[in-house]
């Protein structure tokens, strides 16, 4: 069997049907990963979760207000992820604010919050899953925030303009999440004739349709939000100072 001209048509047809459905396209769905990889990713995230919980515990002991503040922040992140982002290839959603959260709360606390958001996305929105929770947490709540905070720190150190460092922090944090998810899939399903690297290229290219436009729009949006809050609501941000040392 060979398709030449019709293959383009078929591809376009499939994309038209499927793309409007592409909400949270990068959550690895329930049951997609083999058992040993599911368990591996759960084990990998445990130290990050424990350090995050210890940091939160320390702050809660100083002031019990922090617990509620973090709960509100988690709920806010969840609601944001249920929102549709305007993006070129259909509208997609995402645990937005991984970058923003990492700047405000620190990466380890973000891991705890991110895992909670992912649990609720599985339970309330049927996105992601229970067996793939470990893998999703690692890419979205460990790699994303850590890359985001690193980029922000670097650009802040070189005195780059605020909008640039915020944009790059959200944009690259998103791209890191997308690359990590593709790597997790590639590790679980290495290609028969090219191994893991070929498989990685396959997954990266097929998800780039939605993920690269999404990362750009998330970067722009984060800058707009950051500016808006700084301009109009500086007073309210003082509440967040509770979380700073």
């Amino acid at each position: 069997m060979q398709f030449k001209n019709s293959s383009h048509l078929i591809l376009i047809f499939i994309l038209i049907i499927i793309l409007p459905q592409s909400l949270f396209a990068m959550h690895i769905m329930e049951g997609f990963l083999p058992v040993y990889w599911s368990i591996t990713w759960f084990i990998v995230i445990i130290p990050f979760l424990l350090i995050g919980l210890m940091q939160i515990r320390k702050k809660v002991n100083e002031n019990s207000k922090v617990k509620i503040l973090l709960g509100v922040a988690g709920a806010f992140m969840f609601v944001l992820s249920a929102l549709k982002l305007p993006s070129v290839t259909g509208s997609c959603s995402h645990p937005t604010g991984a970058g923003l959260g990492a700047i405000l709360f620190g990466p380890f606390v973000m891991t705890v919050l991110g895992s909670i958001v992912l649990i609720f996305q599985a339970l309330l929105l049927a996105h992601g899953g229970i067996t793939t929770l470990g893998a999703n947490t690692f890419s979205m709540a460990v790699i994303g925030p850590f890359v985001a905070i690193l980029i922000y720190k670097i650009f802040d150190f070189f005195k780059a303009p605020r909008w640039l460092s915020v944009f790059l922090c959200a944009f690259l944090g998103d791209l890191a999440t997308y690359t990590m998810t593709a790597s997790q899939l590639a590790l679980a399903f290495p290609s028969a004739n090219g191994g893991i690297s070929t498989s990685l290229i396959k997954f990266l290219s097929i998800f780039s349709f939605t993920q690269i436009p999404l990362a750009i729009s998330e970067g722009i949006l984060t800058v707009l939000i950051f500016n808006f809050i700084l301009k109009h609501n500086k007073e309210e941000l003082k509440i967040l100072n509770l979380l700073k040392d």
């Binding site: 919980l53 617990k67 509100v72 988690g74 249920a82 919050l113």
Partner: peptide, 19 residues
């Protein structure tokens, strides 16, 4: 861990208000 569960409870309560 109790702290994790408490955070889950608070997040769940707030999701609907914010939503």
């Amino acid at each position: 861990p109790i702290l994790f569960l408490e955070l889950l409870v608070i997040v769940y309560k707030f999701i609907f208000i914010i939503f």
